[in-house]
Design a protein around this nucleic acid. Structure first.
Lengths: 233, 233
DNA sequence: CAGTGGTCTAGACCACAAT
DNA sequence: TTGTGGTCTAGACCACTGA
């Protein structure tokens, strides 16, 4: 007899292992109940909670699918620049500044919690809103954990979008802060003298290792991050 | 027969109406099931979801109480400066700078979504960590919605702590941004020239009206806001 | 129309913690 | 010890929606 926690864990494991990939239909409740030797209501609770956490999408008659975007909550959608920009009715643009496959230097090693010299991918890119610089992204990706990244040029599409779509993650950390830009950041983002940066640093882990670290810097005069909550909903 | 949604709604209404106040014990599941004419498992689901949303606190044998702090999620604990400062092992300090009961001017009216001239309470205070200025709080409170605030001096305790403890709210909005301090802010917060502010604006609503608007400004060189998430938990 | 998830029930057993 | 919540079950009916 499996508890709803066991069932959640097992389903998560299958999603992590890509046995069930994003977009895939998974077995229906009755089928799973039989497999796990549990009542359908127990399976229902497990699936319902995973769906609330954003990992599954459920529709009557259509069945249950692994979600294509596996984050949750208004807060964590923000890092998807394209959606944020287009959602506010502006035109999105993207430009790759730099791409290097290298061994981790001291900073990358610390950020990714890897030994120095471990294979990483360094990326720097700009995101635009209506042609104006909107976000400067600086990122390291753990190549051991995300082998597919080596084949990606990231010239037409940003790494964030690709990672969100292709790489399942299990936990994340966000650090928000304000800072002053250095000369290069000011130039790249087209900022006035004396204008501050709004900085979001995001780190993402799989079940076993750090996947990526990113620093997303916005011109303070042009950027506000909004979050609404209704805890009673 | 009441559905689990009906039961949630009814319990929320009683909490809003202060029929069940923060800290109060509410009837047990069996009793509620009888009142609502539902099965205990239906009541259980309603109470469980309210507890997950942070509105109730449940313990075996001890029963179910209305939570004293009714927000949820790591993000929204941050505005409680005292907890943040003391949680990091530093000494917390508080100082009231200004307190005015007045009619809403244009800014207060806009922030609180009230007609100009409506009764409001304006507050400005400083929060310290280990003796250093840590947060400058600027706040308006809707006196019609929070009549108890008129009797509070807010000289020993900040309005945030008092509000969180005394006033139930049903939804909130947070806006994060980076900005440069004006001369007075720089002086009050003891900031270096050229140092940016990390700004959090928080608005809170009851079921019927805006309760309060606050601007919480931190010296950027000393402040980072961290949030960790495990959507699979 | 029929297959899927959404919810409810009545009952059961168990885990925990206050007493 | 005992009252409370936590979970599970087997079965039922219903609401949606895709074929």
């Amino acid at each position: 007899m499996a508890s709803f926690r066991d069932i959640k864990e097992d389903i998560l494991a299958r999603i992590s292992a890509r046995e069930w990939a994003p977009g895939d239909l998974i077995p229906n409740e009755a089928e799973l109940a039989e497999r796990y030797g549990s009542a359908r209501s127990t399976v229902n609770r497990a699936l319902r909670e995973l769906a609330e956490a954003g990992l599954l999408e459920r529709r009557r008659r259509a069945g249950t699918r692994v979600a294509r975007r596996n984050w949750r909550g208004a807060f964590f959608e923000i890092p998807l620049v394209r959606a944020e920009v287009e959602g506010s009715g502006r035109r999105y643009g993207y430009h790759l500044i730099e791409r290097r496959e290298e061994g981790a230097g001291p900073e990358a090693a610390a950020r990714l919690e890897l030994p120095a010299g471990a294979p990483v991918l360094f990326l720097r890119c700009l995101h635009f809103a209506d042609g104006l610089p909107h976000q400067l992204e600086t990122r390291w990706i753990n190549r051991s954990e995300v082998p597919g990244a080596a084949a990606m040029p990231f010239e037409a599409e940003g790494p964030n979008e690709w990672l969100v779509r292709e790489v399942p993650w299990s936990s994340s950390e966000h650090v928000f802060s304000a800072a002053m830009p250095d000369a290069e950041e000011r130039r790249l983002l087209g900022m006035e003298a004396g204008e501050p940066l709004f900085v979001l640093e995001r780190r993402t882990w799989s079940a076993t290792a750090t996947i990526t670290w990113a620093r997303l810097a916005h011109p303070g005069a042009r950027f506000r991050m909004v979050s609404r909550t209704d805890p009673t909903g």
